[in-house]
Simulated assay, not measured.
Amino acid sequence: MANTTERQGIGHCLKMASSFDWMFREQPIDDIGIDAHMEIVEKSGKPRQLLAVQIKSGASWFREQKEKHVIFRDINERQYNYWTTNTLPCIVVLYNPLTEECIWQKLTKETIERTMKGKGKGFFVKVPIDQIFLNDISQERLLSFTNLPEHITNYNFLLSQKVFMQIINQGGEIKLHSTEWINKSSGRGETELIVDDGETVKKYPYPYWFPFTSYTKVFPKVFPWADFSADEDFYEFEDEANWREYHCYYDKEDDEWLVVGDTFEDYKKSLSPMRSIVHSGEVAEYMLILKLNDLGKSFLLVDDFVSRKQPYVNVRPSDK
Rank of each mutant, 00 (worst) to 15 (best):
V41N: 11
D31H: 11
D233K: 10
K126R: 14
S144K: 11
Y206M: 12
Q105P: 00
I167H: 10
R188C: 12
L159F: 05
K203A: 10
R63F: 07
L94Q: 04
T216H: 08
D231T: 01
E101W: 06
A284G: 03
I132N: 06
F72Y: 15
L88W: 02
H12S: 12
E253F: 01
F145C: 09
G118A: 06
L88V: 12
Y235A: 09
W209Y: 13
R308N: 10
G171E: 06
A59Y: 07
D30W: 02
Y246E: 15
S307H: 07
V222R: 07
S18Y: 03
D251R: 06
F157P: 02
V93R: 02
H177L: 13
D197R: 01
E282F: 05
K66S: 15
P211K: 08
S60L: 04
R7Y: 07
N169H: 04
S272G: 02
F62P: 00
E232W: 06
G45I: 03
G296Q: 00
M16K: 09
Y82H: 11
M116A: 15
I129L: 10
R25N: 06
T85F: 08
D130S: 14
T87K: 09
N169C: 00
I152K: 05
D251K: 07
V260F: 01
A230N: 03
D196P: 00
P89N: 09
K217E: 14
R316S: 07
E232A: 11
L143R: 05
V259S: 15
Y250F: 15
E64L: 14
I152Y: 02
M287W: 12
M16V: 08
L193H: 10
L258S: 08
S307D: 11
I40W: 06
A226Q: 12
L148Y: 14
I137Q: 08
A52L: 11
K56I: 04
K252C: 13
T108L: 03
P149R: 11
I32T: 10
L94E: 06
N154T: 09
F124C: 04
D227P: 00
L107N: 01
K297D: 02
K126F: 00
K162E: 15
Y267R: 06
E192G: 02
E101Y: 02
H69Y: 09
R48W: 06
S185L: 13
I29G: 01
L292D: 10
I289A: 12
E110R: 02
V259N: 09
E238D: 14
D21E: 15
N156A: 03
V302W: 06
F299W: 00
I289E: 07
P149D: 15
E42Y: 14
K56M: 13
T84L: 04
T5Y: 10
P89L: 09
I32N: 04
L295N: 06
G11S: 10
Y206P: 03
T108D: 05
A226D: 12
